[in-house]
Amino acid sequence: MQPGNLELIRRYQIHMLEARGLSAKTIDAYLRHVLQFAGAIGNRDFNTLKPEDIIRFKIQIFDPNAEDIHPDELAPRTIVQTFNSLKAFLNWLREQPGHKKLAPDLPDYCNPSRRLAALSRVQNARHVPTLEELRIILRAMPDQSFKQRRDRAVIAFLFLTGMRDGAVIGLQMKHVDPDERHVFQDPRDIQTKFSKTIPTTWFPVGNDIEEIVQFWFRERCEGGATDTSPLFPSLRQSIDRQGLVSKETFWQSADPIRKLVQHACKAANVPVFQPHALRKTLTAMGEELCHSIQELKAWSQNLGHEELGTTLQHYGKVPEARQHELIGNMRNRNPRPDTRRLIDKLGRMSPDHVKLFESLIDGFDPLKVNHR
Rank of each mutant, 00 (worst) to 15 (best):
G4K: 14
L6T: 12
R10P: 01
G21K: 02
G21F: 04
T26G: 07
A29H: 07
L35I: 13
L35M: 12
A40E: 02
G42S: 08
L49D: 01
E52A: 10
I61Q: 03
D68M: 12
D68S: 15
L74T: 12
K87P: 04
F89E: 00
L93W: 01
K101V: 07
K101S: 13
P107E: 09
N111A: 14
P112C: 06
R115P: 00
R115M: 07
R121T: 14
R135G: 01
I136G: 05
I137C: 08
D151V: 07
A156V: 09
M163R: 00
Q172P: 00
M173L: 10
D179Q: 15
R181V: 01
F184M: 09
P187K: 02
T192G: 03
K193I: 02
T197M: 14
I198G: 01
N207T: 14
D208N: 06
F215D: 09
W216V: 02
W216H: 07
G224K: 08
A225E: 14
D227S: 06
S234W: 08
S234G: 03
L235S: 12
S253V: 07
A254D: 05
R258K: 11
K259A: 09
H263C: 10
K266E: 11
A267F: 13
A268C: 06
P275V: 04
R279D: 00
L282A: 00
M285P: 05
G286H: 00
H291F: 13
W299E: 00
S300W: 01
T311D: 00
E320N: 13
R322D: 15
Q323I: 05
E325R: 12
I327M: 13
G328M: 11
G328C: 08
N329I: 12
N332E: 09
R333F: 03
D338R: 08
T339W: 04
I343N: 05
R348Y: 14
S350W: 13
S350K: 09
L360T: 04
V369A: 07
